[in-house]
Design a protein around this nucleic acid. Sequence first.
DNA 1: AAGCCGAGCAACCGCGGTTCG
DNA 2: CCGAACCGCGGTTGCTCGGCT
Length: 210
Amino acid sequence: MREPYYCSKDGRNKGAWTHQEDQKLIDYIKLHGEGCWRSLSMAAGLDRCRKSCRLRWLNYLRPDIKRGNFAQDEEDLIIKLHALLGNRWSLIAGRLPGRTDNEVKNYWNSCLRKKLICMGIDPNNHKLYHHLPHQKIPQQPLGSPIAISSESNKNNSNACSSKPSLKSHGTNATNNDDDMNTEKNYAIACTGEETSPMLDLNLKLAFEMP
DNA sequence: AAGCCGAGCAACCGCGGTTCG
DNA sequence: CCGAACCGCGGTTGCTCGGCT
């Protein structure tokens, strides 16, 4: 027996949060701490369901949230972690201090996926495509197994070399050494050439308990 | 100036897993 | 052990804004 899903069914507020609502939530959590979201929404005087309160706090109001563009090293880490973990956004975000799973997920879907596609890399399985980037790309079901494969990528160097820069959005492409190294390292990670793909990851991330 | 379109992001929804009585 | 209540995650939706025509 599930609890009622969301706010729409009980006439509570939906949509964007107002400044007053934010302030109420912040004030209440400052006083009483996080947790027990159901009672929190009532006790704080918020006409919102617990999920809405929790989401707002975790994704937006928390004081330790880092806002703004993702740095290059953050991008690299997301890509590597995604190759390793798949769509486990909370785990990926857990390795990025100040970033939320929602933010990482949005950034992946809006920016990084496109970058990888432009690089000729399938963002679902992190393999190189076997055709040029501008050609139509077959959609794969989400959640397909992560595969960092060494197979058959020897003819695909053009795909990666033809790619635009792997850079933060809004900046003009300049080929500085960092970007070139990033690109090269990730291509190596994709192809499995030279070394094990994830050697440059701190492997203790994989199964470290919180 | 107005309308269109796409990108980015916040919020919603539905489900699986966990806890507790 | 069982079921209700709750938590947290991941996918999706829809709103806003900026660029373009």
